[in-house]
Design a protein around this nucleic acid. Sequence first.
DNA 1: TAGCGAGATGTTACAACATATCATTTATGT
DNA 2: ACATAAATGATATGTTGTAACATCTCGCTA
Lengths: 153, 153
Amino acid sequence: MNNIDTIIEHAEQNCKSHGSRLTTKRKQVLSLLAQTDKALSAYDLIDLFVKENGEKIPAMSVYRILDFLEAEHLVHKLKLANKYIACSHITCKHEHGVPQFLICSVCNAVKEITVNKSTINELNQSVEQAGFKLVSPQLEINCICNECLATAS
Amino acid sequence: MNNIDTIIEHAEQNCKSHGSRLTTKRKQVLSLLAQTDKALSAYDLIDLFVKENGEKIPAMSVYRILDFLEAEHLVHKLKLANKYIACSHITCKHEHGVPQFLICSVCNAVKEITVNKSTINELNQSVEQAGFKLVSPQLEINCICNECLATAS
DNA sequence: TAGCGAGATGTTACAACATATCATTTATGT
DNA sequence: ACATAAATGATATGTTGTAACATCTCGCTA
């Protein structure tokens, strides 16, 4: 059983365990996201979907499916890039904290990292001092990955 | 001389000092942004522009003007919200570092803060460990401002 | 097992954000 | 005053996302 199948399997269990359904379409979309480390836009997914499954899918459906997958914590929406990525912890058992993302602004590669708790706390202090409350410490940081950096130079 | 005029004055000097021109239109747009602590979209600005100046402005012009103002470091683009805000340091003399933004997801109020240098350094370490390079440590953080928090409860 | 109801998906239209391209106007130096 | 470059206008279109309503499908119950 390969990695993708494992992920889908876990995702399906995950959904079942609280009464939601990972339908065929949802599996297909999740599968597309799980097969890459790049962030994909909804319209990227529409194109990919046709290529992989030889079948069209409406924009509306993709957005609905992405909303569902996000609510299930199976994908993350990167607001900075208006793109989506599979959660890299689907097959983990432990509760995972709030993710931080590094987004390569050249190739859209995304890395989900865990920032030091203390760093986040410090950040939170700055926020509170300014009279705001953190909604979610999800950070999305514009970067260049080492590969693109090497290619460019 | 009120605060807005001071800002515009400074901005104009700023531009002059390296040979670019703060035209009337550009002043008008900057002025609209400087009069609020809310983040405004390009289309918000179009509407406001009509209201304030009784004269239409094409979307294309607004985007061009925003690009110009951004290049002059007079406004910042918040990618998280697809909105724009006047730089809060226009009238400062010192070189200001890369800004961090707290965006109220309810009312769009934005606060430009300066995060501890050491916090940013820690963040940068996490990034480098992951094999990425920070392009710009501009952070945009989803928050709720204390006012909206109070209203909601 | 037929059919009911909820949830999932399809269809169409459109709103909001953004840019490409080419035309016209305005400012500045000679 | 004129040539030139910069700024702005006009039109069309691309991209991202949602509203509203129709249809289909799955799982339950009679």
